[in-house]
Design a protein around this nucleic acid. Structure first.
Lengths: 390, 390
DNA sequence: CTGTTAGCGCCTTCAA
DNA sequence: TTGAAGGCGCTAACAG
């Protein structure tokens, strides 16, 4: 009703404006590009009026075609379902906004084929650069882009044969931080849960750092045992802690179930077996919560990221009831909504900054910076919640 | 290392290919557009080879410029932080994929100004249509698009003075479904929590339907009381239930706190006041859970969407401890990750389909369909969880 | 079947 | 200070 029924009012072009203003296209173009100093105030006013009258808006496509740059950059996302991704995106958007770039957001939804298609598409739209949160590991997929000389910046993970700027979490430090926290809190059996990691650098680094931290602690524990220092109140937990890596291939339900079954056995063992008079009872919801200290071993799960953590939490809740946290502690890299709600300790990634930096890097490359590939590793922040607070 | 250090290898153009294949641009163009029937196999082969040799990829911008359509559509999102949005997006992407469209995703991040800018930008890139999950309510913002005759499809909510296709949840039915469920389960005090709703059609409808359902139930209860039928086992809860609307302006922390304080008083009253010998005790975590039946009134919260539900849950957890669900039931429209984890009953929106349909509608409009504005209301699905299961 | 000729909307020399 | 002409990469009539 409020919209006039204009019948497909073909957009005004620069020619229309020129005619309307009684001048040539060149002047309009100059006006559009802010070259005000070379326009008489009088002409300028006429142009202004004409533009307003025609509601003229320059066609970016045409501009891009001519000048060779369209201010478009591609943003390839592996999985928007992961809150990490959304948060990074916020940073990306802010930076683009600030730098006058327009991000084309492409969501591969965990499908390598999609990823390939999108990359191809971006290339064909002549984006000036791409930010890639890669799914596929092989640089084959990136060939269409990189081969075309389009600058690329990697987010969170490296791509195998590809040299490019990268920005992401300091995985080594983060995994170490988490592991140490769990050890300090006296957990003596820690399961590091992670998606198949051989191919994804960030996962790989986190897993390796976890094992390294466990190893280091083992040695320290050995020493402490020998030296028998007494000043540390919690020295009693300096006994050797066990570390395990649990691979959770979220893409394959059957596999996940097998892995979870393994975990269940471990939890049952750590949590029931040793308890005299109770060993037979499979689950005792409610009672276990405050009695965690009584278990033969204190077991903790360290999730490599939010999706893994969610998978674990859902499973544990289904198996041990609402009070599952009485049996096992959960610590996760990433800090999703539900962590606060459910009291799970997390390591928060500086997601916003990651996104922002990525765009800055890319922008520099677009502007022609030629330095060697840079890595930007940002620190994670430990957020302690009930889960690991005894 | 694996990437050859090609020095900005200017992309091959159609002219290059023509030269390389020893033919004219037209034939190349024909080849690109799949007009194979008009190409001799021999020429076709030569073109194929030339394209491969030059790694040629046609410039979409240029094509778009010429033929007037670029297969680009704009997708304006109010808030990617809302899982609803991400899910709708999945449907949108799938449909675009199927229809050969490329969605430009614009995230307004709850800022009207962003929304305006993006709409303007989309217009400038000459998208063929837009799907709008609007933030701003006034069609003023949409003027640049609609005024340009660009087809638009609305998602989830209407825009005031604008006539356009819309697809979203059947809000009326959903709110009624939820309310009825709560009433059936015997809750006799229900708070409908919603963001400021005067301006957002979907919220408005949900709230209205809630009140209507409460009213209807009130009348029915009155009748039941008079007629005093005895065949219904749970006839005892046919007593009059109270309904309240709680506005939660998530954008304003102070306001939210005020609203939550009001809610707290109600919960305390319903949950403590009447209990003899206990009235003084502010909170008795743990004990209340299984004793919900003992409270003077059974109180339930009906969240109009996931963000509201999250806000409520976080607050309740902070105030009443991990066992807050023993005091109040929570039911939410939208079905976020954490609902399953935390046992909250929800009404799941057919998000994927919403997105998919939106694109289909838009595509039809782009293809020139002229029918009157259509509404597509899809039903929600009630997912009962522990929260409302006594 | 194939090539030639015009532009699409805009920017950019180059003159005036 | 202004404008005309040419071309960005591609498609769409027209001729051959």
């Amino acid at each position: 009703m409020s919209t006039t029924p204009q019948t497909a009012p073909r957009r005004a072009t620069i020619t229309d404006v020129a005619r309307e203003a009684g001048t040539g296209k060149t002047s309009i173009s100059r006006y559009l590009n802010g070259e005000m100093s070379v326009l008489s105030p009088e002409l300028r006013a006429r142009i202004e009026a004409a533009i307003a009258r025609l509601d003229y808006q320059p066609n970016q496509m045409a501009r891009g075609l001519k000048r060779g740059r369209n201010r478009l950059i591609g943003m390839l996302l592996a999985d928007l379902t992961n809150p990490y991704t959304v948060e990074v995106l916020q940073g990306v958007e802010a930076a683009c906004h600030a730098l006058g770039l327009m991000p084309l957001i492409c969501h591969a939804a965990n499908e390598v084929e999609m990823e390939r298609r999108y990359l191809q598409l971006l290339t064909t739209y002549r984006v000036e650069g791409v930010i890639v949160n890669a799914l596929g590991v092989r640089d084959e997929t990136l060939r269409p882009v990189v081969g075309s000389g389009i600058p690329a910046v990697l987010v969170d993970r490296l791509v195998d044969g590809l040299v490019a700027d990268m920005v992401g979490l300091d995985n080594r430090a983060a995994a170490e931080l988490g592991t140490r926290h769990l050890l300090e809190r006296g957990f003596d059996e820690i399961w590091f849960a992670v998606q198949p990691f051989e191919q994804v650098s960030s996962r790989q680094l986190r897993e390796a750092a976890f094992r390294e931290a466990m190893r280091a602690h083992g040695e320290q524990a050995g020493q402490a045992g020998q030296v028998a220092r007494g000043e540390q109140g919690d020295n009693n937990d300096k006994r050797r802690a066990r570390g395990h890596t649990l691979v959770l291939n979220l893409a394959d339900t059957a596999e996940v179930e097998r892995s979870l079954a393994e975990l269940d056995r471990a939890i049952d063992a750590a949590t029931n077996a040793g308890q005299s008079g109770r060993a037979g009872k499979r689950a005792d919801p409610g009672g276990a919560a405050t009695a965690a200290g009584q278990f033969p071993r204190r077991i903790a799960l360290f999730a490599a990221n939010a999706p893994v953590a969610l998978c674990l939490a859902l499973h544990l809740k289904a198996r041990y009831g609402a009070d599952w946290q009485g049996r096992v502690a959960l610590l996760s890299i990433d800090d999703p909504d539900w962590a606060e709600l459910t009291g799970v300790t997390t390591i928060r990634q500086p997601t916003y900054e990651i996104g922002y930096r990525a765009v800055e890097f890319l922008h520099e490359r677009i502007e022609g910076v030629q330095t060697a590939a840079r890595d930007c590793l940002l620190p994670g922040e430990l957020i302690v919640r009930a889960s690991t607070s005894r």
